[in-house]
């Protein structure tokens, strides 16, 4: 049995994991019931909402843990304020279901963290070699001698824009400018780093939810880069045309070509959404943050109330 500050810390962690688990279940239920269409909201609004959603489990976990532990202790802010409760914050038994749950929680979080860091290191190693073999051209692109049709921005600390000779040879000067502006926009906003952070944060959600969130975030990043191109190149149809051309070339080079209409794909291609957004942009609205804040507060309160109740149910069942 652990007593004192150590026990408080372990109890905090236990409630944090419990809340993370609860939020993940709620998110899975919500995503299976309804499909939130973010497309009609402005880009900054969508970006804010997605980051907020990615951070929500942690915010709720920390708030719930602090409320449950400190409200029921000598740190209690007011006498009689007893809505949130954790009845043995000063003791923690490692050889109990608390200990096992904590161990499982720590293992999952460590696994996801290590996995993300491992991917980051592997990616950095591969990129280093690619960078060494690339030649920087007068446009600031890192040119790669390969037939593959691709242009991308990669690198966490120092993002660089890469383009293959295969693509370069197929583009006119104007089209190349569009590709360059688009990739530079990614590099300037450190999108690879943001993608990694976002993937890490959303990895604590169920796979179906995290996948959907990452698809939305990728689309937001791509549309933001397109929007930055549109500030320089006023002809949006040219941007759209370049997108479509590169997409067709890339499909042809991978040997897949365009799919037959009967082919199944899990989502609409983001090139289609990007072209629609560029050309058919409707009046955008700001995402109403108040319902989101209210939902998160309610969820945090629910987690706070249920933490101890859940604890009693388990201990009653296990005759602890």
């Amino acid at each position: 049995m652990i007593h004192g500050a150590g026990a408080v810390a372990l109890n905090l962690l236990f409630i944090l994991f419990f809340s993370l688990f609860l939020v993940a279940i709620v998110a899975a239920i919500i995503s299976s019931v309804g499909n939130l269409n973010l497309g009609r909201y402005s880009l900054p609004s969508r970006r804010r909402v997605l980051w907020f959603a990615a951070l929500t489990p942690w915010i709720i976990g920390i708030v719930t843990a602090c409320l449950s532990i400190f409200v029921d202790s000598r740190y209690q802010p007011a006498d009689g304020f007893n809505l949130f409760h954790w009845h043995h914050s000063q003791e923690f038994n490692l050889a109990s279901w608390h200990g096992i749950t904590l161990l499982v929680g720590i293992s999952i979080v460590s696994f996801l963290l290590l996995k993300a860091v491992f991917r980051l290191i592997t990616n950095a190693r591969q990129l280093k070699l690619l960078y060494q073999l690339a030649e920087e051209n007068e446009r600031g692109f890192y040119q790669l001698e390969a037939e593959k049709i691709t242009a991308f921005t990669a690198g966490i600390i120092k993002p660089r824009c890469y383009i293959t000779n295969g693509l370069l040879q197929q583009l006119s000067a104007q089209e190349l400018t569009i590709v360059q502006l688009h990739e530079s926009a990614h590099a300037k906003s450190f999108d690879p780093l943001k993608k990694w952070l976002f993937q890490l944060l959303t990895s604590f959600y169920p796979v179906s939810v995290s996948r959907q969130m990452n698809i939305c975030m990728t689309l937001v990043m791509e549309q933001s880069a397109d929007a930055r191109v549109a500030r320089v190149v006023k002809d949006k149809s040219l941007i759209a045309e370049t997108l479509l051309k590169v997409k067709k070339l890339a499909s042809a080079s991978t040997g897949n070509n365009v799919l037959a209409p009967v082919a199944c794909h899990y989502a609409m291609d983001n090139v289609e959404e990007r072209i629609n957004y560029l050309i058919n942009r409707q009046k955008e609205t700001i995402f109403p943050l108040l319902p989101v804040v209210l939902a998160i507060t309610t969820l945090a309160a629910f987690c706070g109330f249920s933490a101890d109740a859940f604890h009693h149910v388990i201990e009653f069942t296990l005759s602890h």
Partner: peptide
Amino acid sequence: GDQESLLAAFVSLSSELDN
């Protein structure tokens, strides 16, 4: 799949457009 990527590609390679 784009959701797993650490890169920002000009066009996605994970999905295709039909005719």
